[in-house]
């Protein structure tokens, strides 16, 4: 029984899950900061992002250590490889949350309740995908992971619709273009968040089923 290896893997699992919690919380706060135009909250998001970055490095080092010292195979190998990739996707989501928050602190967002935008719906869907992808990881549930992959199409569609709408609006009211572009940027970031959540879900599917489903769905 490779007790050492499995003890290390258990530690690694709980570390990636707490990283996931932090990222999820930060994403939620960045969305709230946009919704309420809350500059203080946005600053907090940017601060926590440093912690997320440090934790990402720690997880990566732990993975490399396990690979070097234990040479895991089969499910253990797939788990480590998946965690390595999930780790960097989580860090990227963290960065995107930080970028959204930065736009708030730069006072570029203003009133997000403009009936032009449906910010809340898209934010909810993207954030839900992050939550679900982490849940599929915790519960080793590929069904939830497959659902996340499907949701990505909905987010993409929302983004493209919003982009067209904003395009149109810019040509109508060019004096509002700076404000409109900032909003488009937020949507773009949420769309990227959904992409990273999809990556996580695909890695979970790989870990469980041993099949690489990327670029297939």
């Amino acid at each position: 029984m490779e007790i050492h290896l499995h003890r290390e893997i258990d530690k690694l699992k709980s570390k990636i899950l707490s990283l996931g919690d932090m990222v999820e919380e930060n994403l939620l706060n960045s969305i709230k900061a946009v919704e309420n135009n809350d500059i203080e909250l946005a600053k907090g998001v940017m601060e926590l992002d440093n912690k997320i970055d440090n934790m990402e490095l720690e997880v990566e080092e732990d993975c490399l250590k396990i690979l070097a010292l234990h040479q895991p195979v089969a499910i253990d190998l797939r788990l480590i490889v998946a965690i390595l990739k999930i780790n960097s996707d989580l860090e990227r989501i963290g960065d995107l949350a930080g970028n959204i928050a930065e736009l708030v602190t730069m006072k570029q967002i203003g009133d997000s309740s403009d009936p032009l935008f449906d910010f809340t719906a898209m934010a909810k869907l993207s954030r839900g995908m992050v939550k679900d992808s982490l849940e599929s990881l915790v519960n080793m549930n590929s069904e939830i992971a497959f659902k996340v992959c499907k949701d990505d199409d909905r987010v993409d569609k929302m983004y493209y619709e919003m982009r067209d709408k904003i395009n149109e609006e810019i040509s109508k009211t060019p004096q509002k273009s700076a404000y409109l572009i900032s909003h488009l940027t937020v949507y773009r970031m949420l769309e990227r968040v959904a992409d990273h959540a999809t990556n996580i879900a695909e890695d979970v599917i790989y870990m469980i089923e041993g099949d690489i489903v990327r670029h297939r769905m």
Binding site: M1, E2, L5, H6, A74, I75, D76
Partner: peptide, 8 residues
């Protein structure tokens, strides 16, 4: 097989 190759 999985249990054996992973040292379980």
């Amino acid at each position: 097989t999985e249990d054996y190759v992973t040292g379980r």
